[in-house]
Amino acid sequence: MSETKQPIIQVKNLGVNIKMDEGLLTPVRGVDFEIYPGETLGLVGESGCGKSLTSKAILGINDKKCTSTGEILFRDETDKVVDLLKLNPRGKEIRAIRGKQISMIFQEPMVAFSPMYTIGSQINEATLLHITRDKKKAREISLEMMKMVGIANAEKRYDQYPHEFSGGMLQRALIAMALVCRPRMLIADEPTTALDVTIQAQILELMQSLQKELGMAILFITHDLGTVAKMCDRVAVMYLGKIVETGTAREIYKNPQHPYTKGLMGSVHKIGSLKADRLFSIEGTVPLALNLQPGCGFYERCGDRIEGVCNKIDPETINLGGTHCVACHRCKRAAEKEAVTE
């Protein structure tokens, strides 16, 4: 990314806590990242790593039980920076940003639409709220958007109900609904997980072309390393509520440093590559983020851990050059050694 550009959003030390009878659940523990205009950041991780809660914290739509800490600095169109976490989650200001400046698409398009209203009227909702009160104009804007996302025969489709749409078409309609206000940032939470491969490919390509056209930034949340490779400029790998490694897609895929990233990359079979007899696999399962002690979250499953260090001290994030950052004691030692020999 060019140096002169200002990030559209900067997440600083974001934490999400949930108080439970059994103790403190910390699904997100100090997440930092920033996204620049026109860029796609992939947030990758397995279920329970906190990636969805992170995205919902940005929009302030997390469950009431969750408390968010840290800062989420959003730069609006007038170049004014606001901390989204300081805004009242049900207040006027956040509602002016939500849906207009930042919008979100979800995994299950079937659930995202109400079965009671036509697709058109649901796409209109955001337009009428943020852009115009004129229903005729809103219809025009919606139709234009529906055409843009490749819904053929948009005029007819406009008056149809969600059950008359197929999964792929519905996801397109969902994207149209999210983009109708031309947001500056789009959060896509597993947008293609529920879709078939051929439909998935269409939707991903659609998102890419719309991004070029509208210049928006995308936060792309997924567990699928294939779609990330296809979609994202930069990748952040999350584990147990922390980002363990970030870098450009090439840095992460070709030169993973964190043991978790390495394991993750080894776990997927790259189609078309020579068949290894066995896949690399990470032993054990993701622990529950309950009453966590200091130390690296990956300690228990790591094959490369340093006793007495990794389970005692939180690893700090170090820069490996360029945008490639990693939070690992082992990597830090290796980097220090290299610096000495040089």
């Binding site: 439970m20 009878d21 329970g48």
Partner: peptide
Amino acid sequence: MALFRKKTASD
């Protein structure tokens, strides 16, 4: 949300 439903007693 699966996270909340998960029972956390580990005994």
